[in-house]
Nucleic acid binder design. Structure first.
Lengths: 224, 224
DNA sequence: CTTCTTTATATTGTCGACAAAGTTTAGCTT
DNA sequence: AAGCTAAACTTTGTCGACAATATAAAGAAG
């Protein structure tokens, strides 16, 4: 779940993470106005803490704020999804390429073991288990494997929460879960072979598929 | 200068921009500890607005903060430059491709006129004029031309200030200014021809050259 | 009755003070 | 004298109150 294993120290940290999860997982609906006083009573902290949390949420594009007016949770739209995945495809493709170059041998082995474990659970649970958590974990490790601090930050702190928001709020269970596993397998194989170019291509394609999958869901749920 | 033409409303906005410029342009040296009380007296605002400004500076990677300890201006390093330009190459290459696809004809014309104006000033001032401001303006328009909100935000609000910091603090005047103009010319031509693939390739190459140029400067200034 | 103005209300922006955590200095023990 | 402990100090984190701005409501003019 908390795939970043964030080190929480201050009250603002906690509040930020709580608020973020409540937004990503839809307990605070998209488009909702965020009242500072209301939130400060709900989360039992001062307005200063809420304001800091909101500022961080702005940084990862989960809320937007107008001066002297207030902050709103972003709204999800087909165009927003398209643009988000365009950027994601480019950046994660790059991450896969860099991972093929920079991951240590043991990191690659651990990644393979992760997939093995997922495979076991998958057959055990009737091949519908493999989804959100495992997928996020997989991508997270490759991003970290790039060893590029800016790339890691932009993806993990910047875009991924919004990606999760789209996926969670559109209900991520579907026929794609099994095929995604195979794609992961091929990506890891490319990384293990240190084939940078192939790793990037496969990752880009994997994300493109993922986007198409979500977009069809988005059309079915016509409520956007 | 203020290539984003940011709409300043609150006191925190102003303070953020001031602080950002002071950091980017080296008046606050890289690595400096940022004391909240000291800054609040220097900029004549309360600690609350300083804290908000620092939070925004964290979001664009110009300062780092440890809880209960404080914030420091980032330090510049060859590795940091390398990683920054890796990401920049990928994202701006994508921006050029999208710009070739999405810019309106009039936007493309305006871009060409911009280059013409730069060319005039360049010959007039003895071909050493073309630098920082013009370059930033050029790149800024292409980024905007991508019409991808996430891409725009990550680049303009996220990475560009740090790019500027590297360039400013290493002294950006040099033999490259003239050749860079030709590269810009070719990029615009590719965009005008709606050649997405070429636009991306040329932009990536342009940024790669730019990185190499800065890296050599960084080696000469051995003070890093 | 509609529209504009003005007043009232609610929300955000800013501030100074208190609490908590970290850092330095002084004193004690070995 | 060196190293550890504890107290004093400095800095950050949090809070409640006040000021400024925007929204909503009430009243006046047409």
């Amino acid at each position: 779940m908390d795939f970043t294993s964030e080190t929480v120290i201050t009250s603002a940290d906690k509040t930020y993470i709580q608020l973020r999860n409540d937004i990503v997982e839809g307990r605070i609906a998209a488009g909702t106005k965020l009242s500072e006083v209301e939130l400060s009573t709900n989360y039992s902290v001062s307005r200063a803490v809420i304001r800091e949390a909101i500022n961080r949420l702005m940084a990862c594009h989960l809320v937007e704020r107008k001066a002297n007016v207030g902050a709103r949770v972003v709204t999800l739209s087909p165009e927003g999804l398209e643009q988000l995945y365009q950027v994601r495809e480019s950046l994660e493709g790059m991450a896969a390429r860099l991972a093929a170059k920079n991951m240590t041998d043991t990191e690659v082995q651990n990644l393979q073991q992760l997939l093995d474990a997922h495979f076991d659970k998958q057959v055990q649970a009737g091949e519908s288990y493999y989804q959100e958590a495992g997928d996020v974990d997989f991508h997270y490790r490759i991003i970290q494997g790039s060893k590029n601090q800016h790339l890691i930050s932009v993806l993990v702190n910047g875009l991924y929460h919004l990606v999760r928001m789209y996926r969670v709020q559109l209900g991520m269970a579907g026929p794609r879960v099994t095929t995604a596993f195979d794609e992961h397998l091929h990506i890891v194989k490319a990384i293990a072979n240190r084939d940078e170019e192939l790793a990037e291509i496969l990752m880009r394609r994997h994300i493109l598929y993922s986007k198409n999958n979500i977009q069809t869901k988005l059309l079915n749920h016509s409520n956007l």
